[in-house]
Design a protein around this nucleic acid. Structure first.
Lengths: 237, 237
DNA sequence: GCCTGTCTGGGCGCTAGCGCACATAGGGCT
DNA sequence: AGCCCTATGTGCGCTAGCGCCCAGACAGGC
């Protein structure tokens, strides 16, 4: 069995459960390693498992006309994949793939539905999480419309850093272009500006955040708004 | 009491309830007239009433930094205002104002919560409606990113026509600019192209759809996707 | 060592939409 | 009638990002 990081590998949603429920839930979960670029959900198909990233993170993208894609959400240890089950629907409308490889907990969807029925705490928590997601979705929509690429890129890098729980992660310009809905060259230009300002450093897909504060200053306010909304709703008694 | 239109004034969500529940629910509703530009919800504040438009429609917009706004959703007889209550939160994250004046049914939020607790059918219906809204939100995000203004305008006009249940309604270029997140001049340009092509006609804020089929051809595919998603999810047994 | 595939950088002409400023026209009010 | 306010139309220079293409640079496999 591989040695895990010294940091306890938890998921914030699961951590939000009352002690006894959490124990029971964890006992029914399965620990898995997610590999880079692994596809966990396709639009229009049901999910087999729900996932709770602990040290990995997942990217959700919309698909238009089957071709064009656009990143709409990033899921790390603060969230889960499969939230639509709280609405009683096992149907993904988005594409989900692994962006940050690593550990996650998972559970079969049928089993998870049973857990939901049993646990008021789970339902309450996940309804709140869904509310936050909707808020962030609306925020992202506006962000894509109004903010300049450099600011959006900075925002995204910060979000990724939080979810990777590390100041380095792997993502190429090509991939960023797909997620932010721009050309690859656009990313190259924006990223190299950030690099010249010593905020980040990258080399063949390995990105490293050098100056988080500076990056926050370059990012649009959406990053802040998202975080405020999350803590406002999720920690509310 | 004013004479209503010959068309039966119903709301599709309410119509989706089983007969006995619908009767009871309607008995507890209040019929109101919504006035143009009336504000029904502000971000960060609780709702007093939930609204079910029957012949009116409501526009939802995000607010960024308090200033810039962007339309994200349109609510007519196919939907409701106050869906976040299904998540157990009485908190609007969006701005809601009346765009198409007319009749609507409303209920106090506290009362509505009680109805939700009592009715499995309501919960099921509204969870599905929320799922559809999320899908449409993601679609709109991508639409705003990729599609040209003229197509987005055409899409919006079609959505408004459906919700107004009429081929004419009132909305100025200025307002459209706000909702679509562009300059007023941009709307003037796009709208006059549509007018030259005899798809629409407008004069001082009074818009009339002349050629729906033609407009559909000019609109982006998002209009179709939205409708498909709605009927797929809402009519499913 | 070489070769191939992936990743990053840069140039060039183009367009949608921006910001700003001004012009015209209809409707309602006095 | 005269006036003002709102709604629409137009012109001009500017920029972010597009599409396309090619160049260099590094890594891994043979």
């Amino acid at each position: 069995m591989p040695i895990t990081k010294p940091v306890p590998a938890v998921n914030r949603l699961i951590a939000g459960l009352p002690d006894t429920e959490r124990q029971r839930f964890l006992a029914n979960c399965e620990q898995v390693t997610l590999n880079f670029d692994e596809v966990l959900a396709k639009p229009g198909t049901p999910l087999l498992y729900v996932y709770f990233p602990t040290q990995s993170f997942i990217s959700l993208t919309t698909t238009m006309n089957g071709a064009t894609r656009l990143g709409v959400m990033l899921i790390g240890e603060e969230g889960m994949l499969g939230i639509s089950l709280i609405l009683g629907l096992n149907l993904s409308s988005l594409h989900a793939s692994v962006l940050g490889p690593g550990q996650a907990l998972r559970m079969e969807t049928a089993q998870f539905c049973r857990e939901l029925e049993l646990s008021f705490a789970w339902r309450r928590l996940l309804k709140r999480y869904l509310y936050v997601m909707m808020g962030q979705l609306a925020q992202t929509a506006a962000c894509n419309r109004f903010h300049l690429l450099e600011a959006r890129l900075a925002r995204w890098l910060l979000m990724a850093q939080d979810r990777a729980q590390s100041d380095r992660f792997h993502v190429t310009h090509e991939f960023l272009a797909l997620i932010l809905g721009v050309r690859r060259v656009g990313i190259t230009k924006a990223a190299s500006t950030l690099q010249k300002r010593k905020l980040i450093r990258y080399r063949r897909g390995d990105i490293r955040i050098l100056d988080r504060a500076g990056l926050e200053a370059s990012a649009c306010s959406c990053f802040c708004s998202d975080n405020s909304l999350y803590s406002l709703i999720m920690q509310a008694s």
